[in-house]
Write a protein that binds this DNA or RNA. Structure first.
Lengths: 116, 116
DNA sequence: AACAATACATACTTTTTAGTAGGTATATTA
DNA sequence: TAATATACCTACTAAAAAGTATGTATTGTT
């Protein structure tokens, strides 16, 4: 007998779920963190900071973060183009949480080191 | 011209990435949160607490959390079977972070309410 | 006139994650 | 003896996320 799925609607009623949907992507946490560390980063700088990301995923992820109002996108109409990214206020509010998560991760990584 | 991907290895060197990999699943955050709220939950109770999860995903997610040492699994050899889940110490350490995230989510949900 | 620099866009494929549908085991109770 | 309760398992499919490859635009520089 299989579980009924109650069609949990688009509108997440659970705030934990809500939050995870916005920051759960493969690169979102890191992007937010680096933007916090550097205040402002250009598109290309971000790409170099995440050496494993492709331009497609970088652009796509930045767009999603922008739509969710976590980052600002400032375009300079120059040639060659220049676009700066930074955290919004709402995005900044996530930093204490990412900080905590990062500390946890650091500690875990250390523990894993010790095993070897 | 496309970005080179530097084959970011299995071993995440970035602790933000490391952490997100262990709690990034669709249901992981909520499971950890509910286990924190109730201290101990049985398999079926967890299922009822997450009305949108299937038994397959519930089992699978619990196994992953167990492997990552975030939850304990205690089996009672009875019939019908009884299995209790609870947070490990390491899992507990994630709670302040989930709490923060939850508060952020609550605030955002409120803000979105106001728009309507 | 070709090239560099920068920030993308897009079609398509692959991989990963999640969902469906069905099944198992066993002591207890009706 | 058949139903009940609980905690799973497994093969298969579908959907979502990520990756590959290639292309565009513009202006200053060589």
């Amino acid at each position: 007998m299989q579980k009924k799925r109650k069609e949990c609607p688009e509108v997440a009623t659970c705030s934990v779920d809500y939050a995870f949907r916005r920051i759960g992507g493969k690169y979102k946490g890191r992007i937010l963190w680096y933007l916090h560390e550097h205040s402002i980063l250009r598109y290309g700088e971000l790409g170099r900071t995440l050496p494993d990301i492709t331009t497609k995923m970088l652009t796509q992820t930045l767009r999603e973060l922008e739509i969710d109002n976590l980052i600002n996108r400032k375009v300079y109409h120059e040639v060659p183009p220049k676009v700066e990214y930074s955290l919004t206020e709402v995005g900044e509010e996530l930093i204490p949480f990412i900080t905590h998560l990062k500390e946890w991760g650091d500690k875990q990584l250390e523990r894993e080191q010790m095993k070897n």
